[in-house]
């Protein structure tokens, strides 16, 4: 896929016309996590603009797309009204499907997956189950059990329920997840 096609594809999927970006950098300047990013938001915009398949690949493998907090600061201040967070959503989903998640970001993805898994099971989020599910996943990816310190405090303050809340219409609810959380292609 060449530049033109990449731009068209992004436009089709997100409605955002990245051609309008004139590289002022205001998005990066205001981004709370720009320091930590490997590719800054405005650089991602530029790479999509001039992008080849290799550049797209680099974006999809970047840490940035997972670091983005969807805080919407960039979008709200962009002089060209470019909805970067929406593009980030698209890039993340593609990165996941194409199996290109940055190794450092696995923890973040694991967390999101645990979250949706817990929701899928009960309809509502149980923070205890989320913590357990997430810790299991992150243990697998080799990280430490860092929330040990908080959990007891949460229980003593009545903040962790041991029995998860559940919704009633589980059947109808599970329809929403049908074909949505597939395992990634090998």
């Amino acid at each position: 896929m060449e530049t033109k096609n990449i731009l068209i594809e992004v436009k089709r999927q997100t409605g955002v016309n990245i051609r309008e970006c004139y590289q002022c950098g205001k998005c990066t300047a205001g981004c709370p996590v720009a320091e930590e990013m490997d590719l800054r938001p405005s650089v991602i915009m530029r790479m999509i603009q001039s992008g080849t398949n290799e550049e797209m690949d680099q974006i999809l493998r970047s840490y940035t797309i997972w670091l983005c907090l969807t805080c919407e600061t960039c979008y709200s201040r962009c002089p060209m009204d470019i909805d970067i967070p929406k593009v980030m959503d698209y890039l993340r989903q593609r990165s996941l499907v194409e199996g290109k998640v940055h190794p450092e970001a696995r923890k973040i993805v694991a967390f999101h997956k645990s979250f949706l898994n817990t929701v899928k099971r009960n309809g509502r989020l149980s923070e205890l189950f989320l913590t357990i599910d997430y810790k299991m996943r992150s243990l697998r990816s080799g990280t430490l059990f860092q929330d040990m310190t908080v959990a007891p405090g949460m229980i003593s303050r009545g903040k962790l329920h041991l029995i998860p809340e559940q919704i009633k219409d589980k059947k109808g609810f599970s329809r929403l997840f049908k074909n949505q959380l597939k395992k990634r292609k090998p």
Partner: peptide
């Protein structure tokens, strides 16, 4: 002043 240097790989300044 939170700005950026777009000529240095968009480094926050």
């Amino acid at each position: 002043v939170k700005g950026v240097d777009t000529l240095l790989n968009a480094r926050p300044v």
